[in-house]
Design a protein around this nucleic acid. Structure first.
Lengths: 227, 227
DNA sequence: TTTCATTTTTGATAAAAGTCAAAGTATGGC
DNA sequence: GCCATACTTTGACTTTTATCAAAAATGAAA
């Protein structure tokens, strides 16, 4: 399966991580501070989301496991048929995961912005070929970790173990809400729901992508917006 | 959120647990064997799904944590607004989780048959009022466990810890597939998809419920079936 | 078996969303 | 700043699905 993390249910956490994302963008002039800024967002993420402390030793272990990667706009991280190796944490930029059906129509399953996680879990976990594409909507910087490395960290760092527990729950909560929205609301209601819960998506993603996320055609979204 | 477990991705496991479900039904004449038969399905479930052994001591701990409950047709396990206390494992029968919108329309989020798990995870995990109703579609027998007890078992029994890891993943995989189906397929395609992946639902649930699960009206489902 | 309630089907019509084509509008790469 | 490309909007029309009403079919209880 595919999943964007939304551990941003607790509002306070989201806001803190997002402010750090901005910080990491503003200092990305030198390689060294940039690196630090990138990992700092991740460390703060673990610290804010769980109640466990994170020592500088822990930080070192995390730094070794998570590889920094820069991707340009439209660059693929995963293509359909690949066996996906990594789970991604977005430092800045935006990712999207989507499928393409036999008619060539795209369906956006999830977006990920700064401080969100993104992975084709089914592929990563079961080591089967991905059903989805993951690509960068904007120039982005991400941290990649393999499930094996993450599992190894889990045994050493309680904050990571706790994170994984909460993360999986959060994915389940988020996806279930989306099922509910998809099966019980019409196009207009889904649009209003997205406006309410993810107004930032409208700043960051094209109408085409938003329409695809809502499961409607761009023309229909355009008409909804006119009202 | 709400989630039906579908740890039945590995086909072999599903088939073994389902055969046990039938067994437990056939021996439900005396209280003692019935009890044993019920728990046996759960033990086998843990054994088949993970590679860790389960000692008789472990079985005793599990027996203490999971409470057997019988529910009659249409009986509610959770009502909207309740703070849900338990995670359920279905021994026999069928459960359904659904929402009711302001117009009184129901939307079935998930079904659970023998060997499946059912819970309003959001409510159970965050101790917030449930958005959903869970009720029995048929006379059913279920095992209930609180998240706290399950967490306690996790520390003592590796098979349980492994189960929880895999279970959460599985919920995520299943729900993600459902999102994909919901946003990228039309009514006919969703119907065909359900026929292919869950033909048993058509034996166990009314057309009304199936339609609701597919996000269409009963009249539309009836017309699709005519083809 | 008969009866009553519920579920499913059918038909006519309405509303929602999709399709196709074309005209505007942005915008990112040079 | 310009151009080519991609994105968004608009209009006319089609298809899909919902709605409403009523008739069959089913099935559970007396």
């Amino acid at each position: 399966m595919a999943a964007q993390s939304t551990l941003n249910d607790p509002t306070a956490v989201t806001e803190r991580t997002e402010s750090h994302a901005i910080e990491s963008v503003s200092i990305r002039s030198t390689v060294e501070t940039h690196r630090d800024g990138s990992y700092k967002l991740l460390f703060d993420y673990f610290r804010n989301y769980t109640k466990f402390p994170l020592s500088s030793t822990d930080e070192g272990l995390i730094r070794d496991a998570f590889k920094l990667k820069k991707v340009r706009r439209r660059q693929f991280l995963v293509q359909e048929g690949d066996v996906s190796k990594y789970i991604c944490f977005v430092i800045f930029g935006a990712l999207r995961i989507y499928s393409v059906n036999e008619r060539g129509q795209e369906a956006v399953v999830a977006f990920a912005l700064e401080g969100n996680w993104m992975s084709d879990w089914e592929s990563v976990v079961t080591q089967t070929p991905a059903r989805y594409y993951i690509d960068a909507v904007d120039h982005s910087e991400i941290l990649q970790v393999s499930p094996a490395e993450l599992h190894a960290l889990e045994a050493k760092i309680p904050a990571i173990a706790e994170f994984l527990r909460l993360e999986q729950r959060s994915v389940a909560v988020t996806t279930q809400k989306r099922i509910h929205t998809a099966i019980s609301m019409n196009a207009e209601e889904r649009y209003q729901d997205l406006l309410e819960h993810h107004p930032e998506y409208f700043q960051r993603f094209s109408q085409n992508m938003i329409a695809s996320y809502l499961g409607i055609k761009p023309e229909t979204l355009s008409r909804l917006r006119k009202r």
